[in-house]
Amino acid sequence: MSILNKILTAFRGGAREVGEAIVDANGTRIFEQEIHDSREHLKKAKHDLTDVMAKQMQTTREVNRLKESVSEHEGYATQALNKGDESLALEIAEKIASLDVDLSQQDSALTTYSGHVERLKELVRKTERQIKDYERQLSMVKTTESVQKATAAITDNFAGSNSKLLGAKESLERIQKKQQDFDDRLKAAEQLQDETVDKSLEEKMQAAGIGETKDTAASILERLKKK
């Protein structure tokens, strides 16, 4: 059964009570043990893989060396035959035969190692995918539990502090009222600013002698002088 199904079953089966474990602690531990074991397998598989790959490289080098040696000795044998030295040619041919035996042994070893490398690489891939899958599932269980525990902590906190969780509508009304208050204040501030702008315009006009001008001491004195 998939882990999500287990969680759903636990919910339906009454574990929806906040704080109740979805998968019992033992189940989680078994899960964690499985992840741990898989990681160990992975480590061993990777170690084996590097060993076999090293052997594969060594054997490849050996096969190449033997092949070169065979062709080299074939050259020597031909030279001996050309010189008419039949017995030397035979001796060289025996050497070639023994090199051939070595070569076929190394060749078959190489095939075995290559097959091994393929299988180990496949094993590493599968194990890595399985660990990821286990971790994802464990994270689902842990998140579900964490969320339930968090909810329990929050509920307890509210119960302990004597404050009450507000209903959604009440919360909404309060928040909207605050926003309304803010808007009202903003509007009032704007109006005040408009008035200030009007006032300063009036002042400027007065300074320029436009519109209704007030008598100043200077203008009174000026008027008196003209009389």
């Binding site: 968090a150 329990a152 902590a153």
Partner: peptide, 10 residues
């Protein structure tokens, strides 16, 4: 910080 089984931040 709200104390409990899981640490929760309000």
């Amino acid at each position: 910080l709200i104390p409990g089984d899981t640490e929760v931040l309000q």
